[in-house]
Amino acid sequence: MRETKQFDNHFGIIGWLGGGRWGIERYLYIIHRVAGLGILLFFMMHIFESSVRIFGPESWNAAMNVLKHPVFKLGEFVVYFGFAFHALNGLRLILIELGFAVGKAEEPVYPYRSSLNVQRPLMIVVMVIAAVVILAGGMNIFVLH
């Protein structure tokens, strides 16, 4: 067979956004992944920031002073948002992956109903809980402190 040049049409990271029909679960998928990576990034920054200690109390205090800047308050909320969302949505995914809430195989009859319709109530409940938890955390960070 003659070899011809082909064009690589993989979506790449844009595929996390494009290429589908924009079901709500896809948004959750994107936030879940971005939040997961964000938490990883936070952990690395956190370890770096804590490790400043080995340079003595002055550098530690200097680092702590930098962290008092209001921008870090917002940062704290972003990390909290990512954590709360990732944890709760992760529980939903675990339930789904254990076969709860996706239903049994059924005869496809048009208009098709998929397992997404079956799990939607679970998704809604989890998202409501996530919203409450995130709001409560936000109150704690911005209002009470």
Binding site: G23, R26, L93, Y112, S115
Partner: peptide, 16 residues
């Protein structure tokens, strides 16, 4: 797979 569900939304045969 993290259950974005697009395969099932897009499937033209309802395979899910």
């Amino acid at each position: 797979c993290h259950y974005a569900g697009e395969c099932s939304n897009a499937c033209p045969k309802g395979v899910d």
